[in-house]
């Protein structure tokens, strides 16, 4: 386990270096340079030159790159050019909101999707085709619903018509009750897609296991269907399910950008969209890196859990 984790950790570090390098150099491909793209037509020659100096764009490329690393390692993200606020502080305020939404979605998803998928597999196994195809059909449609569309529906129905959840207002962890009310709809919207994906995978995985010999043995011992299903079948079907939880985290992060936009949530997704609209390339660069790091870290954890469940796994 130790050697395995070490190997995966090295991979994580290599990927991180790659991600930072790639983002850094891609951003230097902007026609003109970041400073003139940012300023548009608003700055004259001299002011533009000062902005370049301020952004360090007049240094040689390699030294810019090394400076960027030096700052990144101490989590110094500089200042946003447009407002002059500390980019690091903005991100530190925004990140917990996005991460809470993502984690809450995972919890809701696991609680709903695993029983639903197991149920569908059980029905399919028992030959109850109608109910099974109803669940799988619904899962397919829900899976493909664009999250901004679902989001608008939920906004219209739960917030504007029923008035159950506030659609605007501050979002701060200092007021937990209000915070939960504000993130409830985003979490519901994201859960729709996630539950659908995971229920489908769970169904396939459990269905495969249900025709194994050891399940028949368990049944022949007179154990209840529920016990066989959840203690034996589900446990053995856990591997693909864990993989999917890890992989779907990517689509979950994609989704947070959209729901933050719809529900006016000041998470890192909103920072990103605002950053692009105000052409704050340094902010965009940092945020894309942060997203990638969250994603690779989750994949790293998934790999470890996978290995923990199935010691045969080696890479």
């Amino acid at each position: 386990m130790f050697a395995f984790a070490g190997k995966k950790l090295i991979q994580l570090i290599v990927t991180t270096i790659g991600v930072v390098t790639l983002v850094f150099f891609t951003l230097r491909l902007i026609p003109g340079d970041a400073a003139s793209a940012m300023a548009g037509d608003t700055l004259s020659g001299e002011a533009l030159e000062r902005l370049r100096d301020q952004m360090g764009l007049n240094e040689p490329l390699m030294s810019q790159y090394l400076t960027y690393w030096r700052k990144l390692l101490v989590l110094d993200f500089g200042e946003t050019i447009t407002t002059g606020l500390s980019a690091g502080e903005l991100m530190r305020a925004a990140a917990p909101i996005t991460i809470s939404i993502a984690l809450a979605t995972i919890v809701v998803t696991v609680l709903l999707a695993i029983p639903l998928g197991t149920l569908a597999a059980f029905l399919a196994h028992k030959g109850k085709k109608g109910l099974d195809s109803l669940i799988t059909g619904a899962a397919m449609v829900l899976d493909l619903m664009p999250s901004f569309w679902t989001g608008l529906f939920f906004l219209l129905f739960f917030s504007l018509t029923l008035g159950l959840f506030p659609a605007s207002g501050t979002v701060s962890l200092e007021n937990p009750g209000h915070f939960l009310q504000r993130i409830a709809l985003p979490v519901m919207v994201l859960s729709v897609t996630q539950v659908a994906t995971m229920a489908r995978i769970t169904r396939t995985a459990v269905l495969e296991v249900l025709s194994e010999d050891y399940i028949r043995t368990a049944r022949s011992l007179g154990w209840s269907e529920l016990r066989v299903l959840f203690r034996h079948a589900l446990k053995n079907a856990a591997l693909p399910i864990v993989t999917v939880v890890g992989l779907s985290f990517g689509s979950l992060l994609n989704g947070t950008v959209i729901v933050e936009f719809i529900f006016n949530i000041p998470g890192i997704g909103s920072l990103l969209v605002n950053g692009i609209n105000s052409r704050d390339y340094q902010m965009v660069q940092n945020l894309i890196i942060v997203y990638a790091l969250i994603f690779v870290t989750i994949n790293f954890v998934t790999d470890l859990v996978y290995r923990k469940i199935d010691p045969r796994v080696s890479f």
Binding site: G18, V23, L272, F295, V296
Partner: peptide, 22 residues
């Protein structure tokens, strides 16, 4: 594969968003 692995470290919509900004 090294390049591919690095690119796969970005959630797809976010990579597209980053590229569109360029």
């Amino acid at each position: 594969m090294t390049v591919v692995d690095i690119l796969l470290a970005f959630p797809s919509l976010l990579l597209a968003i980053g590229l569109v900004s360029i």
